[in-house]
Write a protein that binds this DNA or RNA. Structure first.
Lengths: 228, 228
DNA sequence: GCGCCTAGAATATGATCAAATTGCCCCATG
DNA sequence: CATGGGGCAATTTGATCATATTCTAGGCGC
């Protein structure tokens, strides 16, 4: 039903190009990453079937992938929900993020071209705008974009894969914290990272990244303390 | 068809307790982890449906999870296969394994009881036997068991999750290398780890683990060089 | 050598079966 | 007589299967 092969009139080629389970995965992933889903919220298959207008099998496959990503948790019985971050989880995340993302920054530095630096600068400008206007959703998107684009040039697929997964774990909590404390409280350490990239100083980039990661996680930690 | 609810003859109750897609996942996971599937080998849905005697949907879900784990790769068209490890991949694996597994050893040390040390010692004995008798499959199983049991006491679910995934990536290659070089060439650094655990010396445990990881990965690196 | 055509495998849908949660009713008790 | 707890049933949801559709690949003819 709906339009499987469309009305042939609209000359689109994109949507049909990738499979339905991939579409569903990307959509759900974005919703989790950018905090559209609250920690603890139950995720039902049939709910997503209605919401996303997809079939049952693609939704199931997307959920399995996200469980494997750590973005969703299987609650023993057959319930699936968005995980709630505990203090211990956060401590682990800090350790792994510091290790992995610093290394990614270090490795990306020699491969980053002027064009990429320009793109990163552009993203950072948009991020500043989002912070100043209190646009929480925009802040989350631009912040992720910055890190994601940088890591894409580290030529380290396994490390990048791990980092991406970590972001899925604290995404929902970051949204909650941002909404509670406001975007003003978030410092922007990206300027230091950009400066390091321009100087082609890998160690400085790693150091700046460590500070960025620590401050971001610190904010989440404070937010979670308030919740307790 | 086949036996959905079994022929009532075999009085087992366990298998029905966990869902089919979980069974399929565990089986496929073991096959990859212990090298029953060689790197580069194509994995087809219908092939697994026949081999494992399961339905199509559970097999699809298991494959999605394993792709997300990095244990399988989606080849763009609709083909799925066991990934082939490159030199760059191996270098990344070494970095992450050293970081993560050393930390896991460090964290596990204070939580490991005498009973656990006894279990680890028992596993290590079985591992020695496997090495001496040239039992490649036994070596792989016992080696994984040792690390897995140790990490289970680190009380660090995220780190353990990452480590588990890394093992899936080099499992197939480790099997190939072991079959080529023989188990004799594998040194056993577990004795040092056990000694560190008995002394409750976390730093020493981390150091011993680092040596174990490095030597294991070194073996794989040499094996891959031969293959090129 | 190139293009079409057929075969086979993967994707996606809907239906069916099984399980768990929830709400409700009845009974026991204060 | 009112209230709370326990058990039963109805409904919602998840798991599995059978089937139709689509896309890719390899073979055959031109």
């Amino acid at each position: 039903m709906t339009e499987t092969h469309s009305a042939a009139g609209s000359a689109q080629e994109g949507p049909t190009k990738l499979p339905a389970h991939e579409i569903v995965y990307q959509k759900l992933r974005s919703q989790i990453l950018f905090g559209d889903l609250v920690p603890g919220q139950a995720v039902t298959i049939q709910g997503l079937v209605e919401t996303l207008g997809a079939g049952m099998t693609p939704v199931r496959e997307a959920i399995r992938r996200l469980i494997s990503d750590g973005a969703l948790v299987f609650q023993g019985n057959r319930r699936v929900s968005v995980p709630v971050l505990g203090a211990k989880d956060l401590e682990e995340l800090i350790f792994v993020r510091k290790t992995v993302e610093c290394e990614l920054a270090r490795r990306a530095t020699p491969h980053v071209t002027e064009a990429v630096i320009a793109q990163l600068t552009s993203i950072d400008t948009a991020l500043d705008t989002a912070i100043n206007t209190g646009d929480v959703a925009g802040y989350l998107v631009q912040n992720y974009s910055f890190h994601s684009l940088l890591y894409a040039h580290a030529e380290a697929p396994i490390l990048t894969d791990i980092a991406d997964r970590l972001w899925l774990r604290f995404g929902p909590s970051l949204r909650v914290v941002s909404g509670r404390l406001g975007t003003q409280s978030f410092p922007d350490r990206h300027k230091d990272i950009l400066e390091a990239l321009r100087r082609r100083d890998a160690d400085m980039a790693a150091l700046a990244m460590e500070r960025d990661v620590c401050q971001g996680m610190e904010q989440v930690a404070q937010g979670l303390q308030v919740a307790n």
